[in-house]
Measured scan of single mutants.
Amino acid sequence: LDITFHVDGKNIHVHGASEEVVRIIEELIKNNARAEEIKETLERLLR
């Protein structure tokens, strides 16, 4: 699975993920999660 995301100002662009995963990533970023935390969360979800 190949998910890429980047933050452009306040806009979060996520590619290669389901809508549910996109929402989770957006929440994590809004809550100022570190990249490592986001990665760990995604790995748990995608197991």
Rank of each mutant, 00 (worst) to 15 (best):
R44H: 07
E37P: 02
I29P: 00
I38L: 07
L46H: 04
L28A: 05
K39V: 15
G9N: 04
D8W: 05
N31E: 07
D2E: 10
I29W: 04
D8P: 01
I25C: 02
H6M: 12
N32T: 05
V21D: 05
N11G: 05
I12N: 01
I3D: 02
H13K: 05
E27H: 10
V14Y: 06
G9V: 00
V7R: 01
A33K: 08
V7T: 03
T4E: 10
L46M: 12
L45F: 07
L1E: 08
A33G: 06
N31L: 13
K39F: 15
N31C: 07
D2L: 11
E40S: 12
T4I: 14
E37I: 13
K39S: 12
R47A: 15
A33H: 08
L46G: 03
E19P: 13
D8Q: 06
E26Q: 13
S18N: 08
S18H: 05
T4Q: 07
E40L: 14
A35T: 05
E27C: 06
I12W: 13
V7P: 03
A17Q: 01
A33W: 09
E37A: 10
S18T: 14
I29N: 01
S18E: 03
V21T: 10
I24V: 10
V22L: 08
L45N: 01
K10D: 11
A33F: 09
H6A: 07
L45Y: 07
V7D: 03
V14M: 03
K30H: 09
E27T: 11
R34E: 07
H13Q: 07
H13L: 06
T4N: 10
I38N: 01
N11M: 14
I12S: 01
L42Q: 00
H13C: 04
V7H: 05
V22D: 00
E26D: 09
R23I: 07
E36S: 10
V21L: 14
H15A: 06
I29A: 02
R47H: 13
D2S: 12
R34V: 07
N31M: 14
E36I: 07
N31D: 06
I12K: 00
A35F: 15
V21I: 13
H15I: 11
E27Y: 15
H6F: 13
I38C: 01
E20M: 11
G9P: 01
L46Y: 08
K30C: 06
A17N: 01
N11I: 13
L42K: 00
I24G: 02
R34K: 12
L46E: 02
R44M: 10
K30Y: 14
I38S: 00
H13F: 12
D8R: 04
D8H: 07
N32R: 10
I12M: 06
I29L: 09
R47Y: 14
L1K: 12
E40P: 02
A17D: 01
V7Q: 03
A35H: 11
I29K: 02
E40Q: 13
A17K: 01
E20A: 08
H13E: 06
K39Q: 14
A17T: 04
L1Y: 14
R44Q: 08
E20L: 10
E43P: 01
F5V: 10
N32F: 14
A35V: 13
K10S: 11
V22T: 03
L1T: 10
R34Q: 08
R34F: 06
D8C: 08
H6D: 11
E27N: 13
I25F: 04
K39G: 08
S18Y: 04
H15V: 09
N32V: 05
E27M: 14
S18A: 05
L46C: 04
K39C: 05
L46R: 06
K30T: 08
D8E: 09
E36K: 08
F5D: 02
S18W: 04
D8T: 02
I3F: 15
D2W: 14
I25E: 00
K10E: 15
A33C: 06
R34P: 11
L46P: 01
F5P: 02
V7Y: 07
L28V: 01
L46A: 04
T4P: 01
E26C: 08
G16C: 03
H15Y: 14
N11V: 14
V21F: 09
R23H: 08
V7N: 02
H13T: 11
N11A: 14
E43T: 15
L28N: 01
A33R: 09
R47S: 13
I24W: 06
G16S: 08
I12A: 00
E26I: 14
F5G: 02
I25Y: 02
G16L: 07
V14E: 00
D2P: 06
L42W: 03
V21P: 00
L45D: 00
L42N: 00
S18M: 03
L28W: 04
K39D: 06
F5I: 10
K10H: 10
E20P: 05
L1H: 10
V21Q: 05
V14T: 02
N32K: 11
K10L: 15
A35Y: 15
K39M: 15
L42C: 02
D8L: 04
H13I: 10
L46F: 13
N32C: 04
V22E: 02
N11S: 12
I12P: 00
A33E: 04
I12D: 00
I38A: 02
E43G: 13
I3V: 12
E20N: 07
N11L: 13
K39P: 01
V14H: 01
V14R: 00
A35N: 05
I3Q: 03
N32S: 10
G9R: 01
T4M: 09
R44K: 07
E26G: 10
F5A: 03
F5R: 03
V22I: 13
V22C: 02
E19C: 04
I38F: 05
D2F: 12
H13G: 02
K10R: 09
L28F: 05
E40G: 11
L1M: 13
H13N: 05
A33P: 04
T41N: 06
I12R: 00
A35P: 09
K30G: 07
E40R: 14
L1C: 06
L28G: 01
G9L: 02
T41F: 09
I25Q: 00
G9D: 05
V22N: 02
I3W: 15
I12E: 01
H15R: 09
E36Q: 11
E43F: 15
T41I: 12
R23G: 05
E36H: 12
E40K: 12
E19Q: 11
R34G: 12
H15K: 11
I24K: 09
T41E: 10
K30R: 13
N32G: 13
I25W: 02
I24P: 00
L28H: 04
T41M: 12
L46I: 07
E36C: 06
V21G: 01
R34C: 05
R23P: 01
I29H: 01
I25T: 01
A35K: 05
S18G: 06
N32I: 04
